[in-house]
């Protein structure tokens, strides 16, 4: 594994460094510019949100970081190495829009899936499964099958599965997009506690302004055709914040700036 050899230099490198990155999809209707000239740096321990309308390339950018898509130009490093090396070193955990739990495995077995692939011992597997189930409030559901749980519980199980890998970097693609407002608020608070406690780096894709402002230390506003970054907003809220801060003037000011950035990106279309 390359992760072992480069870990010495990787400690100092930023979690993600992107320079002049672009990606062109060749479709049947001709080339489509999905990402254009993206520059971005994510420091260790940051919580960065990508926000933008559908088609702005925020998911594509996350997939490039995860080595699920190949960029056609520019440079990108994850933990100081290429995304492929980072992926092979299992440097990140990825949470998809859907829970993507395997229906033939129980919840416990689903969470153990990446651990089995990594070749961990049985005892270590069991310990990590129990710890992470407790972390997402799913203790007692080990032997249930995914289809026996609600959508919110399934998504929590998929977060536990990503956390069980114990990655430094957590990539989350609209993980709460399909959930209702109340469940989403609850999971947002839990995610924030988790980030605060574990000091992980989180990259979070969303199209909800309040969610982005509440969670992030840095908000990357994107706009479509071609997908590009139009604004990067730093948020200085304390690490132990609660949902109450959403009523404060500072929160509303940042939300207004995000909204303005989104509108600016859209204006030429109408």
């Amino acid at each position: 594994m390359t992760g072992e050899g480069t870990s010495g230099t990787a400690k100092e490198a930023p979690a993600i460094k992107i320079a002049g990155l672009s990606l062109v999809f060749n479709t049947n209707d001709g080339p489509v510019q999905a990402l254009s000239d993206i520059d971005l740096e994510v420091k260790r321990g940051e919580f960065v949100s990508f926000i933008g309308p559908s088609g702005c390339g925020k998911t594509t950018l996350l997939r490039v970081i995860a080595d699920l898509e190949q960029p056609t130009g520019g440079s990108i490093t994850v933990n100081g190495v290429s995304p492929e090396e980072a992926r092979l070193a299992r440097a990140y955990g990825y949470v998809f829009q859907a829970a993507a739990l395997y229906p033939w495995r129980t919840i416990a077995k689903n969470i153990a899936l990446p651990l089995e692939i990594m070749g961990l011992t049985r005892a270590e597997c069991d310990k990590r499964v129990a710890d992470n189930l407790a972390l997402v409030d799913l203790a007692g559901f080990e032997r249930k099958y995914p289809w026996q749980l609600s959508g919110g519980m399934q998504q929590r199980a998929s977060i536990a599965r990503a956390l069980a890998v114990e990655p430094e970097l957590l990539l989350m693609d609209e993980p709460f997009g399909a959930l209702d407002e109340i469940v989403r608020d609850h999971l947002n608070e839990k995610l924030l506690r988790l980030w605060d406690r574990t000091q992980k780096t989180v990259v979070f894709v969303t199209h909800s302004i309040p969610e982005a402002v509440f969670l992030s230390t840095k908000i990357v506003v994107m706009s479509p055709r071609p997908g590009r970054v139009t604004d990067v907003i730093e948020c200085g809220f304390p690490r132990h914040r609660t949902l109450d801060i959403r009523e404060t003037p500072e929160f509303l000011a940042i939300a207004a700036r995000v909204r303005a950035g989104l509108r600016a990106g859209h204006s030429y279309e109408d």
């Binding site: 699920l68 990140y92 990825y94 993507a100 395997y102 692939i117």
Partner: peptide, 14 residues
């Protein structure tokens, strides 16, 4: 299998 399930395996470097 769904693309999302296969992507999941890819993120684990399976």
């Amino acid at each position: 299998s769904q693309p999302i399930s296969r992507d999941l395996m890819r993120t684990y470097a399976a």
